[in-house]
Design a protein around this nucleic acid. Structure first.
Lengths: 153, 153
DNA sequence: CATAATTATATGTATATACATGTAATAAAA
DNA sequence: TTTTATTACATGTATATACATATAATTATG
């Protein structure tokens, strides 16, 4: 087990709550790095993968940009720009909305579905192999994280 | 309490461990956003603040770039470039290393110390007001996060 | 001592975040 | 209906991440 103290070369924290904040930030970085590492082989970034995964949830239906954005983990992601890159790689297709001309509708291409399936298998494996908690501990962790954000507006 | 399901508009997760992964990523984004919001008034980014805070830990001693980098939460941060911006704002001072000519030594200026003190008070307040867990829960959370990273190399 | 390898930092490029602004389509109001 | 406001998306800018490469100083090796 690697303690936060070793990871960020720091021994004094104001208190356990303060340390928990840093621990969450560091663990998120650790997780992102682990998965980005796998995705690199497929020329995908973590964020591009996230958009593909969101699209998969509705496939074969199309989704508008706003709808995708609302499901992103990092809410400030610039979804149109991420879609630009996915479109260049021909993993998604853009069409103008028919009902609402302002909307841009996005749908996965076959290439998109294929790359998503392969990468998802790889990522799930990484998750299973590198995250060392059991389901009960994970449930406890989920409860605590949601409690952290209790005062979220 | 805001459930992850509501935050990322998603109801089905593979299992609790998988959900915990997403929950960690989302909570980290939430924390970063909260603090960046405060730092904005001072023209500082989260990462710039992190560098200042690290320098404070050794002040009035100088620190070399590598030493700062090893203490960063996000290990891929481009520390020389972050220091560029802090130097422009005259919050830190760069000097070439005397013992080792390759090193660049960084030290906080008075302006750096001042801005750090003010912002730290504000950020600690945000932490206390917005993180809704007690010390015991935080300790439990720290234990679980470190267990998540158990297989860290 | 001269050359090679290593180390510390800087710089360059692609992509992302954070946020402001622009543009076109739709909805609401006078 | 004409104007105004809003909405959906795109685009622009500054900074950051992720990673490759460059440069200069130091250390190791022959």
């Amino acid at each position: 087990m690697v303690k936060l103290e070793a990871a960020i070369q720091s021994t004094k924290f104001k208190n356990e709550v303060h340390k928990a904040g840093l621990n969450i930030l560091y663990t998120a970085w650790w997780l992102k790095t682990k998965s980005s590492c796998e995705l690199k082989d497929f020329g995908l970034t973590h964020e591009q993968y996230n958009v593909l995964r969101i699209l998969k949830g509705k496939h074969p239906e199309q989704m508008c940009v706003r709808d995708i954005a609302s499901r992103m983990i990092e809410k400030n992601s610039n979804v149109p720009r991420i879609i630009d890159r996915l479109e260049l790689k021909k993993l998604v297709k853009r069409t103008q909305g028919e009902l609402d001309g302002r909307q841009t509708m996005i749908v996965l291409t076959n290439a998109g579905i294929n790359i998503l399936e392969t990468t998802t298998i790889k990522l799930d494996k990484i998750f299973d192999e590198h995250i060392s908690i059991n389901q009960t501990e994970a449930a406890q962790l989920n409860m605590l994280l949601e409690k952290v954000r209790e005062k979220e507006k």
